[in-house]
């Protein structure tokens, strides 16, 4: 990987581009630097935002001079450069009703903005990624786990990166023109990233399904949101679990009753171990979810 490219975002931000292209290595390096920066508790630093292949820091230049801020980040880059790329994190199972009636209604409403007005988003994504059917595509989408490589755009929205070799990664362009509406909790896909729309709103990702699990709630009604109103953190690992309409309805009832919960387990992720055997390593990760 090349050296990080730094640029000031006005007088209050440093933007660090770790790589122009997306990779787990770039994400890991950014996470490691952001973690170290956070631990140093530097006066004047107010925001530390890891993203897919970059990170952003906001600081108060009256407290720490921009050049001091920059040299601190370069120093941390040099220190973590050779560090073991390991991340203590958690794996979580997210139920998904694929091809649900609500995202289907939405995608039909905005068909004139889509590359292929004559099929639905799942059919289009299956075809251009070389899968014979929607079912085959869903099996692949929900097979390997996904890495949360960024949280943002709007409150609590995770971007997820599929943990398979690059040539196997699902890639789908965004809509030709963004929609003005997307149902809350839609599972979508744009470029190489999956996303869960945490709130209802505009968007350009392809629509694959919907999860009954709230991931952002200022009222913090569910057990897994008690700690904080946003569920996802960069570095979380997600396994999609296809569910039926009956299971979806049952989950929604549980959400309304305040009894719905997610399966969440701690894991330690090693990038090196993943690269030596992506398929086997991912399987072992997923087994952690159900107590093996």
């Amino acid at each position: 990987m090349r050296a990080i490219r730094y640029s000031f975002g006005g007088d209050e931000h440093v933007f660090a581009e770790i790589d122009e292209e997306m990779s787990l290595e770039a994400f890991f390096k950014g996470m490691a630097i952001c973690r170290e920066l956070g631990e140093r508790r530097i006066a004047g630093v107010s925001e530390i935002c890891p993203a897919n292949a970059s990170y952003l820091v906001r600081f108060d230049p009256d407290v720490i001079h921009p050049n001091t801020m920059l040299s601190t980040l370069k120093e941390i880059e040099a220190e973590v450069g050779g560090a073991e790329l390991e991340l203590p994190t958690r794996i979580v199972e997210i139920p998904v009703l694929y091809n649900d009636p609500w995202t289907r209604e939405t995608l039909m409403r905005f068909r004139d903005r889509h590359q292929d007005p004559n099929s639905i988003d799942l059919e289009y994504a299956a075809r251009i990624n070389g899968y014979a059917s929607i079912d085959e595509f869903i099996a692949v989408h929900s097979g390997a786990p996904w890495f949360v490589s960024m949280v943002g755009f709007v409150a609590g929205l995770p971007f997820l990166f599929q943990m398979v070799e690059r040539q196997k990664q699902i890639e789908v362009p965004k809509y030709l023109r963004p929609r003005t509406d997307t149902p809350k909790l839609t599972v979508g896909h744009g470029g190489c990233f999956a996303a869960i729309y945490s709130v209802r709103g505009a968007g350009g990702y392809q629509l694959f399904g919907i999860t009954p699990a709230p991931i952002y709630d200022p009222a913090q009604k569910l057990p897994y949101l008690k700690n904080f109103m946003v569920f996802f953190r960069p570095g979380d690992i997600v396994k999609w679990k296809p569910i039926s309409r009956e299971e979806y309805d049952r989950d929604v009832e549980a959400v309304e009753a305040g009894t719905f919960d997610l399966t969440i387990r701690p894991v330690k992720f090693s990038l090196k171990a993943f690269h030596s055997d992506p398929g086997g390593y991912s399987r072992r990760l997923v087994e952690v979810l159900h107590g093996h």
Partner: peptide, 21 residues
């Protein structure tokens, strides 16, 4: 376009936006 960035030349791999950017 780099892997993971969109197809338009104004696209990048999704990144954090500074205030005022």
């Amino acid at each position: 376009q780099p892997f993971g960035a969109g197809s338009d030349p104004s696209n990048i791999v999704d990144a954090g936006y500074p205030y005022g950017s």
